[in-house]
């Protein structure tokens, strides 16, 4: 039996856009992720994919429902604890790479290590190790704007991996990449999944990418489809 990392039931979330316009982004979604999963959440625009990912990543709060993250009841935790959990248990990869522009590739990776509680020496070692895995040793002193999209996304993946998270959440990781680079990135994630049993949960609207995943979770209108 593998470990259940995410067990969420009946997730509900609504956003008040204006006085009269209330959007029910999630309307009772169930989701389960096991250790070692490589899953994709798919669905049309506005189906609640990103909201679901934000809630699972503790970036946003639930209105209703149950959510256990690696055995922890997240409905009871405070913002301060959520920061810590994000730092240690969850890795994030974003569509726009979202590296800190003033930091070099190496520093971007090390910064996440700092939030995860690594000391300066550990951060450096871990970041160097990941740069090797990503094949980015030569680019480590470069700032994000001096890197290609694929390279930036590799730095972002390395950053997500620094604290050896239980799960990596990826929001459209290939959204801004051409198809060849997209394939490279997904292959890289897959390799990490196979070799290190690293769990991934990604949101995508690209079916080609979704087909490469082991499991597909479909959403429509804020519900499981």
């Amino acid at each position: 039996m593998s470990r259940t990392l995410i067990q969420a039931k009946n997730l509900r979330k609504k956003y008040q856009m204006s006085k009269t316009n209330i959007v029910q982004a999630l309307d009772g979604v169930d989701i389960e992720v096991q250790e070692g999963d490589f899953s994709a959440i798919v669905g049309p625009s506005g189906c609640g994919k990103s909201t679901l990912l934000h809630i699972l990543g503790l970036l946003d709060k639930l209105d209703e429902g149950e959510y256990n993250l690696d055995g922890l009841d997240t409905t009871k935790i405070r913002e301060k604890d959520a920061n810590q959990i994000r730092a240690k248990k969850i890795g994030f990869i974003f569509q726009g790479f979202n590296l800190i522009p003033s930091l070099t590739a190496l520093e971007n990776i090390m910064q996440a290590g700092k939030y995860g509680g690594l000391n300066a020496r550990q951060r450096k070692e871990r970041a160097e190790e990941l740069l090797d895995v990503m094949g980015l040793q030569e680019r480590k002193k470069h700032k994000p704007n001096e890197l290609s999209g694929g390279q930036q996304q590799r730095v972002a993946i390395a950053r997500a991996l620094v604290n050896k998270p239980a799960i990596i959440l990826a929001d459209e990781p290939t959204g801004e990449l051409d198809s060849a680079t997209s394939k490279d990135i997904i292959d890289l994630l897959k390799k990490l999944n196979q070799e290190n049993n690293q769990t991934f949960l990604m949101v995508t609207h690209n079916m080609e990418v979704a087909e490469m995943c082991k499991k597909i979770i479909r959403l429509k209108d804020g519900r499981n489809a």
Binding site: L59, E79, N83, Q84, A87, G91, I100
Partner: peptide
Amino acid sequence: KKEIGIKKAIGASNSS
């Protein structure tokens, strides 16, 4: 703002 969001997403505490 975005940068602050990223930092918080990757685990930065409010105090840091």
